[in-house]
């Protein structure tokens, strides 16, 4: 019914609307950038001394891709909270009563949040360079590393959109998503080497897509220690492919599901 061109045009309108909010509410951008800076500094200087990294790489180099991944995955939770907020304020009702594309509100939302994540990652990368993180590969590979991180985060945004449409209260969305995101990011290789985990947790961490995104980013930025032991799990041997596969599967499941929920949703 709605053509592709109309969907694109509506999505652009909604993306613009969401980005205007980022401009008008500076807190959003401040928190999206300050908390990652804080994480970089905390881990680098507080835990850095206590965490042993195998091979000949500094903890800063090991750490930064982990911080990147954690931050963009956390950043994606904004999608759920924002959709719940729009539902609560009756804006989703207004949009649903308009002759606009039925997927544009969700596309515009996730694209705007992707933009916010991109800003966070730039700020973190600059902070990282100050504290000793380095890119040791080509420009192309480095760009690939950032794309991998953002692509995975974009997929998580759609998962969060479903959470927002189901839960409907921004505060609850935040709490609920932290319950999931915290274990996913901490039971991974983001901050500590996998060798330090007990066996069951280690298997979980090896197949955890956050680990593979981090591993993939480390490879693409050249932050994998030269003397590090080779990963045993297949997922960690092919981290980029495995991570992108996750992103694609999440999108295949959650894009149609969230559009369906959006079409059916109703505040009473």
């Amino acid at each position: 019914m709605t053509t592709l061109a109309e969907t694109v045009s509506d999505s652009v309108t909604i993306t613009r609307r969401n980005l205007i909010k980022v401009k008008r509410v500076p807190d959003l951008i401040v928190f999206a950038t300050l908390s990652p800076i804080m994480f970089v500094l905390l881990f680098r200087y507080v835990f850095g001394g206590a965490i042993d990294v195998p091979g000949d790489v500094s903890y800063a180099e090991f750490l930064l891709p982990g911080i990147f991944a954690q931050t963009v995955v956390f950043g994606s939770t904004i999608t759920g909270a924002s959709i719940a907020e729009d539902l609560q304020k009756g804006l989703i009702d207004r949009f649903r009563s308009l002759p606009m594309s039925r997927s544009a509100v969700l596309i515009g939302r996730t694209v705007a949040d992707l933009g916010l994540n991109a800003i966070s990652i730039v700020v973190m990368a600059l902070t990282g360079l100050v504290v000793g993180w380095r890119i040791n590969t080509s420009v192309g590979e480095a760009v690939g590393g950032f794309v991998l991180l953002l692509a995975f985060a974009y997929a998580v945004s759609w998962l969060m959109a479903v959470v927002g449409l189901l839960v409907r209260t921004p505060e609850v969305v935040n709490n609920a998503s932290f319950m999931v995101i915290f274990p996913l990011t901490f039971v991974s290789n983001a901050f500590v080497p996998l060798e330090s985990f007990p066996s069951v947790l280690r298997t979980f961490a090896e197949w955890n897509p956050v680990s593979t995104v981090v591993q993939g980013a480390r490879e693409l930025f050249g932050n994998v220690p030269a003397g590090a032991p080779l990963a045993e799990a297949w997922s960690l041997q092919h981290p980029v492919f495995y991570s992108l596969l996750w992103a694609v599967v999440i999108l295949i499941v959650f894009v149609p599901l969230s559009v369906r929920l959006y079409v059916r949703t109703s505040t009473r």
Partner: peptide, 13 residues
């Protein structure tokens, strides 16, 4: 055109 019970305007715009 629909105007619901709670003014559905985007307060940041």
């Amino acid at each position: 055109g629909l105007t619901g019970q709670y003014a559905a305007v985007d307060e940041y715009l």
